[in-house]
Design a protein around this nucleic acid. Sequence first.
DNA 1: TATTGTTATACTCTATAACTATA
DNA 2: TATAGTTATAGAGTATAACAATA
Lengths: 159, 159
Amino acid sequence: MAIMRDIAELHEPEALARLVSYRIRLVQIAAYKTFEARVSGHGPAPRYYGMLKLIEANPGVPQARLAEAIFLDRSSLVPILQELEREGWLERRAAPQDRRVRRVFLTPEGAGRLVALERAVEEHEARLTAGLSAEDLETLHRLLLRLDDNLRDVQAGRV
Amino acid sequence: MAIMRDIAELHEPEALARLVSYRIRLVQIAAYKTFEARVSGHGPAPRYYGMLKLIEANPGVPQARLAEAIFLDRSSLVPILQELEREGWLERRAAPQDRRVRRVFLTPEGAGRLVALERAVEEHEARLTAGLSAEDLETLHRLLLRLDDNLRDVQAGRV
DNA sequence: TATTGTTATACTCTATAACTATA
DNA sequence: TATAGTTATAGAGTATAACAATA
């Protein structure tokens, strides 16, 4: 990184600055990079925090349902689960009633480690949302959920 | 895609649903995929729409400044610019006053094609933000910009 | 016939390191 | 010494296609 160089920022045209899709993309890229840079000591888990919380809340979820929930092809999920299983975060058990299925569970150790990871996530969240009032946060959630709904309509072909 | 299968959705725990970072990540992934799926006929340009608008607003920007603006290493930008140059969107000219620098400009053809692309972008934006009032949009922008500011503070080491 | 999990494979995107030419 | 652009290279992360097992 240069230190003494003149860093005149580029002009961001109004047609760009006005786009919610553009701003959300920039914020999410920066938030993700910041999170990965700040959180260490949890192995490969931080990037899968959301998935691990979903497994915790849905013990025994089949791999295919999990893949859908996080918008991944089920083949893409395989090496991820294999790594997290190898590292002791989760385990997979064959389902007796449908022997095609493997059900995913957190290990007790994984559940414990997830508590520590959650603290790091909450710290990151606090830095991200610093200065927002409780009302701001509620409004932001409401608006983001509306965007989410709109996108589901598009994906479902309803729009 | 299965059609008749039972698609019981996973339970999303409150600790996850409450996270702005989680919701923004999901929305941005879905928005980006929707955009890529819907916009065709513009070659490789759609994913670089933001960068092309920045070039348009900052004609002659050096490659290195452009890379910083979109959070890319300058080496990562090279093949992108080469492709867009090959496809006629932009051109690069050596800077006489500093012969290390190559200045980036839209071609007249690129500027024209960007108008058509912009229409597609605006349609996507309209689908994304459907149902939001003008006041909602203004609030959303204000809150997202605050998140952006917070992240810049973190990246600059001020937090 | 359809679904689940898996493998092999390839493609996209990105960063790092090393190089050159310039300043 | 530092910066700009480039190349070679490697590593993530992802999807597609094909397969066996099972429903």
